[in-house]
């Protein structure tokens, strides 16, 4: 199998807290692989292990043909990283940020200079070449960070929550760029807790919780494996009471969350027929999605 990255029984603890607990995964060349999970599930730690920035307590990790973290330096020559928090150089212009970053890979100034127009165009920052970083919007900064991650023409790009904090316009633009990158044959490894992002972009997903992968596969497979295909959301003050007495007869499974009831069904018709008898309840009938899978697998309680 053509794996660019493989992890076996990877384990990382901080004190008594097991952050990554026996992780096995393999990422294929050219795919977009998503790591999903609530806050604190171990996604960022997993990325840091993959880049060789921290050493695992147990397990093995290979990135390309290199053992990581022992040979992380040559491995990192061929990867790009979009970090979760902005770490652009605030003292520099857009172009200077790319120039300085390219030097860390040992690329000559002339070569970076030649690449600049293409990178700026990709990031939609052609007119901002000489703008200083602090005046850029959040979306522009994120696009510049993406362009910076491409300065060494990497084979694999790691993105840690690439669209967190962006407005919908900025988010859609980033998604479009990421799709272009997969179309060019780049391998993407991203963490996210936006299910829509995962569903739209990723060929394969792994859902993490408490440092373990609890389910993995394509978005369709995950939905098919984990959850009934139809969802009827019912809203109203009486929804919970109604669910206890009526939904139970027609739905395979239901969950109450405040004044909403989520009914999971193979066939929605009997339930929808039943709902016609209750005009005081509003409802929404839709196909099941990754968010339903995620909530089923990781629970509805708040995480911090």
């Amino acid at each position: 199998m053509n794996a660019v990255l493989s992890a076996r029984k990877l384990r990382k603890c901080y004190g008594d807290h097991v952050v990554v607990d026996g992780l096995d995964l393999s990422i294929r060349r050219g795919e977009c692989f998503g790591l999903l999970g609530p806050n604190g599930a171990g996604k960022t730690t997993t990325l840091r292990l993959m880049l060789g920035l921290i050493a695992p307590d147990q397990g093995e990790l290979r990135l390309f043909e290199y053992d990581v973290p022992e040979r992380a330096r040559p491995a990192r020559m061929r990867v790009g990283v979009v970090p979760q928090f902005d770490n652009l150089d605030p003292d520099f212009t857009v172009a200077e940020n790319l120039l300085v970053y390219g030097r860390y890979f040992g690329i000559s100034d002339a070569k970076i200079e030649a690449k600049l127009p293409g990178l700026l165009e990709f990031a939609g920052l052609t007119g901002k070449r000489d703008a200083k970083v602090p005046i850029l919007s959040g979306g522009m900064k994120r696009r510049l960070t993406l362009a910076r991650a491409l300065v060494n023409d990497p084979e694999v790009i790691f993105l840690d929550e690439p669209t967190t904090g962006l407005d919908p316009q900025a988010r859609h633009l980033i998604w479009q760029r990421l799709r272009e990158l997969t179309a060019r044959g780049k391998t993407l490894v991203l963490t996210t807790h936006f299910m829509e992002e995962a569903e739209r972009l990723c060929h394969r997903l792994a859902v993490m919780d408490n440092g373990r992968i609890i389910s993995s596969g394509s978005p369709r497979e995950l939905i098919a494996q984990n959850i009934e295909p139809q969802v009827v959301e019912v809203f109203g003050e009486m929804a919970a009471t109604w669910a206890q007495s009526n939904a139970i007869q027609h739905a395979q499974r239901f969950e109450v969350s405040g004044e909403s009831v989520f009914c999971y069904v193979d066939d929605a018709q009997p339930l929808l027929h039943e709902l016609l008898q209750h005009p005081e309840l509003r409802y929404l009938h839709r196909p099941a999605n990754m968010e339903d899978v995620f909530l089923k697998l990781t629970g509805r309680e708040m995480r911090d």
């Binding site: 920035l53 970090p83 150089d89 970053y101 860390y104 890979f105």
Partner: peptide
């Protein structure tokens, strides 16, 4: 504060 090191550590620099 600026996380400059963090950015650099993602490259082949140690």
């Amino acid at each position: 504060q600026q996380r400059t090191w963090e950015a650099i550590l993602n490259t082949p620099v140690t």
